[in-house]
């Protein structure tokens, strides 16, 4: 019985892993194809099924002609994503702690409404916000700048940080606060010394969501810049021409995923640390 359960468990993990990996494997093999390799039907194994070529990869790194500059956008993306995520995380965590521990009342508006207000910022389809954001940044001369993008991204990311953190703070027992208060901590000290260390998994999750949503945002990166401040997704779709070169798109997709795989490893690590901290209390 126990063995059977384990078998099922492994089978489930295996099946899901295969599903996760499949598109990447397909992209990998496609990235070595040429037009002939694509148009002769689905093929999988280089040399056996089709004649591989390094054309797509050479194109990305700039020796085949028609290359795109990946490094500049890469750095821009990192700067914008990290700063907006950090600011959102700090402001969002503070607000979330407030919303989790105190009672706010302004007329009919209470805690639940305030929390919902934050997350409701993400409901609006981005399409229509393009023009007002454009006008707003234009007014302050911030179009096509890193700073302008950071501002817009804060509005996109902070709601996620608040929403995730409220839930996690709610999970941290209130007794911890009370004990700290009795020990003479003021609310800020309580938050900093006692609650925050106990919410590490939450912080990691909120942080990673901010980074992922920021890194992958395509729409605002696209509409609020002209030629100077290009972010990575924008640089990658600049290969999406009317003739879609499957191979170079595959190669660039793989490149854009690579750094985030690193992030996934980091996240996993901190999740475990959080576990230890949480378990030790």
């Amino acid at each position: 019985m126990r063995n059977l359960l384990r078998l099922i468990k492994f089978a489930a993990i295996l099946i899901w892993s295969a599903f996760v990996v499949a598109p990447f494997l397909w992209a990998l093999t496609t990235s070595f194809k040429t037009a002939n390799g694509v148009t002769s039907g689905a093929t999988y194994i280089p040399f056996v099924d089709y004649q591989p070529s390094l054309g797509a990869w050479k194109g990305l790194f700039g020796s085949g002609g028609g290359s795109i500059d990946i490094m500049g956008p890469f750095v821009n993306s990192a700067v914008v994503t990290l700063s907006a995520s950090l600011i959102s995380l700090i402001l969002g965590t503070l607000a979330a702690y407030g919303l989790s521990r105190f009672t706010y009342k302004a007329g009919p508006v209470g805690n639940a409404d305030l929390t919902f207000f934050f997350i409701s910022q993400r409901i609006m389809p981005p399409v229509v916000l393009a023009i007002p954001f454009f006008l707003m940044l234009g007014l302050f001369g911030l179009l096509d700048t890193i700073f302008g993008l950071v501002i817009v991204y804060i509005a996109l990311l902070m709601p996620i940080a608040v929403w995730v953190m409220v839930d996690f703070f709610n999970q941290v027992p209130r007794e911890l606060d009370e004990t700290a208060m009795i020990d003479g901590c003021n609310p800020v000290e309580t938050f900093w010394r006692v609650i925050l260390p106990n919410s590490k998994p939450g912080l990691v999750v909120a942080g990673i969501f901010c980074v992922v949503f920021g890194w992958n945002d395509f729409f605002f990166a696209f509409t609020l810049t002209f030629t100077k401040t290009q972010l990575l997704p924008v640089a990658i779709v600049s290969l999406n021409s009317s003739v879609t070169p499957w191979w170079s798109l595959s190669a660039s997709a793989l490149i854009s995923v690579a750094p985030l795989i690193l992030v996934a490893f980091l996240v996993e690590r901190y999740l475990d640390k959080g576990n230890i901290a949480g378990g030790g209390k």
Partner: peptide, 28 residues
């Protein structure tokens, strides 16, 4: 496995959509 399970979320949706479209291309 944990890292593997996280990865799809890290990809840019619009780029992956192009890859998926090639996967479901009915003849190629």
């Amino acid at each position: 496995t944990r890292v593997l399970f996280l990865i799809p979320m890290m990809t840019t949706p619009v780029v992956m959509a192009v890859i998926w479209r090639t996967i479901f291309h009915e003849s190629l």
